[in-house]
Design a protein around this nucleic acid. Sequence first.
DNA 1: CAGACAAACGAACGTTCGTGCTATTCTGCC
DNA 2: GGCAGAATAGCACGAACGTTCGTTTGTCTG
Lengths: 217, 217
Amino acid sequence: MKTRATTEKPPSAGQRTRSAILEHAVDLASVEGLEGLAIGPLASALQMSKSGLFAHFGSKEELQLATIEAARERFINEVFLPSLERKRGLTRLTALSDAWISYAERKVFRGGCFFVAASAEFDSKPGPVRNRIAAVMGEWLGALERAVTLAQESGELDPAVEPSQLAFELNALFMGANWAFQLHRDKSAFVHARVAIEARLGGLELRPKLRVMRKRG
Amino acid sequence: MKTRATTEKPPSAGQRTRSAILEHAVDLASVEGLEGLAIGPLASALQMSKSGLFAHFGSKEELQLATIEAARERFINEVFLPSLERKRGLTRLTALSDAWISYAERKVFRGGCFFVAASAEFDSKPGPVRNRIAAVMGEWLGALERAVTLAQESGELDPAVEPSQLAFELNALFMGANWAFQLHRDKSAFVHARVAIEARLGGLELRPKLRVMRKRG
DNA sequence: CAGACAAACGAACGTTCGTGCTATTCTGCC
DNA sequence: GGCAGAATAGCACGAACGTTCGTTTGTCTG
């Protein structure tokens, strides 16, 4: 999960409109789906011509792929990077969980989590779009898993639990909260998710007194 | 969650083809989505004319609603009814969980759980279709919750846990397994889900020796 | 056998979509 | 300030979609 290239040039006019397009596209797609993301309405929303917008991407599939990248960037900025600032261990793992729930609650994407929607839409449609979505979600699960491992290595979390197992469970709770909230408009889903996460992590927490120091990998 | 009317007449030719259409539609929709469920290709798959098929429903929205009903029926038959045959309590709750995981693993719908896909697709699109999907999912969550309550009343499950909380958690694990399997084609998702479910329910189980009898509500 | 009715068909309509081609406007640089 | 090239617009095409219509086929009934 790496960020953009470090070379920072003043963006050209074309790149600025491209970004503006994608900012809209990402929200539109989270509502209408990546397939339902139509070029005409998207252009209208930005007061552009269809062809003018289209020229930025060359094909709908390229637009979809670019939209995924934009969504990934927003996700990283809203969920991942802030948590990276917390110190390794249980603190960071908790921060990641809190950040995800908050991200769903704040509706960072207008139609709920972009990637949950995109996954469900494309999981049975082979092709580059599906592959990219799967790769990004793989990154995320990997990051979660790594946070678990770090918490174990720092001696704050029971090392007996399989990192991939705990990452799966946490992610499932995230998605369950997003699902319930989006479908039933019921904010108590977030309460349920937070309760479950806290109970699960609390049950695995090693208190300082009993903590066993383990050497770093 | 009640089944069809009990009056059983020999189905007319029209009703038979209607059922055949919906059996295909349900699988097609689980792959292409309810919006992507196009009438032309559906008709071709059944070697019918578009218009002949269309006449059964009158509008695309009616087709979508009928498809939801057909999916609901299949879900009930594959997951809910078999579990209802098990005796109330932890047995039935476990049966429901096992049945759901097996339902996802067996790909009862060609594109994974129909309702997970439909929820994600329509959760931001107000209208009768969304409403029906939400209602069916409400039924399901209610059934899960009731199974939890019954397990508590039979003294097999810790009565301290909120039924809606546990139902939420179980459902999240179901969806997480379906999601991971559909997106990454990774069967270990089911292992993770089963492990998590067993651990959670095991932790709440009241062993016979300590079991406290509680009167029925 | 004649009539009635459900079921399915084939062709067409209007709309929307993605895409390509050509012209025009804007922008950054010497 | 003017010019090259990037950026955007205008217009049109073909395909796919949901939907409508008039007609044909098949099957019971009187």
